[in-house]
Write a protein that binds this DNA or RNA. Structure first.
Lengths: 209, 209
DNA sequence: ATCAAATTGAACCAGCGAGTTCAATCGACG
DNA sequence: CGTCGATTGAACTCGCTGGTTCAATTTGAT
């Protein structure tokens, strides 16, 4: 059996390769990204890349999926904050909205969407997986929480699925208008404004009574 | 000077090339689309393509911009219907919402966004132009109409810009969840449901009182 | 008919990048 | 120290595609 250090060494190298692959794919696109550059970015030789991940295609898939998992975990963690809302519903909604906005407009998440949607033609299955692990999972989790809130009469009776859709739409829609891709990231203050506006209209539409 | 018919003949061929270029770029992506295939799709020889549009890059830009202009025109036409709203505001909003959904989730519009966002890395300026001619123009036009409605006390006092953003978000957000790319298009009935739901929460949040 | 411009098909060049091979090197472990 | 496996760098093959050239042909106007 291989010793702990060497195994760890291998794992680290694989992670480094995947990490580098994602950043290079993100900045060049699939076709323009050459394996050579990925190898350099990872601080590794080209044959080593092919040693760990057989194809350029495999490399792409694994890199994208890894990031998708990370983003999904963050999103679910944020929504979990709605499990025990205090007496100030608006405050906790604003908090959740703000954090979700930050995650969804992070560099990683934006690059992820850009890659998946941009290469939908060549990797049709990949886009499904990405959507499943980001949008859908997030939608389901949020719908669960909203259902409980509705049942507890903190929100008016409604279809939790469409409420979740609309909440997320109110968040991400206005955000992506403000985020010129590549250039200056959206400021935290701006994000907060958008998040609060989203929560405001959401509550106007979904408050009890 | 060239006669009308020959000029028309040239124009037709140019249009055919641009049309073909867009469809091929849409289905293959920029890099995988070879000029040969575009020429075949247009029913034309390869040198003819280079005769009309110098570069592959130029070809791409012109093809994308042409479609962007078409989509923008459709969008603006739809919003124009809000200029004289009848006494049933909800009905006309639902109509506009439905038509906007159809346009924004049309094959052309989806391919357009996919192309622009997917190749944002290589053509940073192109994405700006596309956004300008679709999202921004639409946003502005809608904000204008909403401002008038607010002034006429058919909507509560509000910032027309954020109201427009949120209206569009409520529309397009839930739509793109339902549209698996490539496969079955969203049914008209489904679109109507989403549009009506969007108008319902929008009116709940923005009705006077 | 005739002339000029546009079009065509085919061949050709050049560059680029995926993927492979291989000898040299490194690093852990006994 | 010696061994074995992983890593490295460099060179190489190979296919593909953008872009060009050119002679032959078509098209359409006068």
């Amino acid at each position: 059996m291989v010793t702990a250090t060497s195994a760890r060494g291998r794992i680290d190298k694989r992670q480094a390769i995947l990490e580098a692959a994602f950043t290079v794919f993100a900045r060049r696109g699939y076709d323009q990204a050459c394996v050579q550059e990925i190898a350099e970015e990872a601080g590794v030789a080209k044959p080593t890349v092919y040693n760990h991940l057989t194809d350029k295609e495999n490399l792409f898939r694994h890199a994208v999926l890894a990031v998708a998992d990370r983003v999904m975990a963050e999103n679910l963690g944020v929504v979990e904050r709605l499990r025990e809302p205090g007496d100030d519903l608006r405050a906790v909604l604003e908090d959740v909205a703000y954090r979700l906005s930050r995650v969804c407009s992070s560099e990683q998440a934006r690059a992820l969407r850009s890659l998946a949607y941009g290469h939908a033609g060549r990797f049709p299955d990949l886009i499904d997986v990405v959507r499943e692990r980001t949008s859908h999972r997030l939608r389901e989790a949020l719908a669960d929480r909203l259902a409980r809130l509705s049942l507890a009469e903190r929100l008016r009776p409604c279809d939790p699925a469409v409420a979740a859709d609309q909440f997320l739409a109110l968040l991400t829609g206005p955000m992506e208008v403000r985020s010129h891709p590549g250039v200056h990231k959206v400021s935290a203050a701006d994000t907060r404004v958008v998040a609060n506006a989203a929560v405001d209209t959401f509550l106007r539409a979904y408050k009890p009574d």
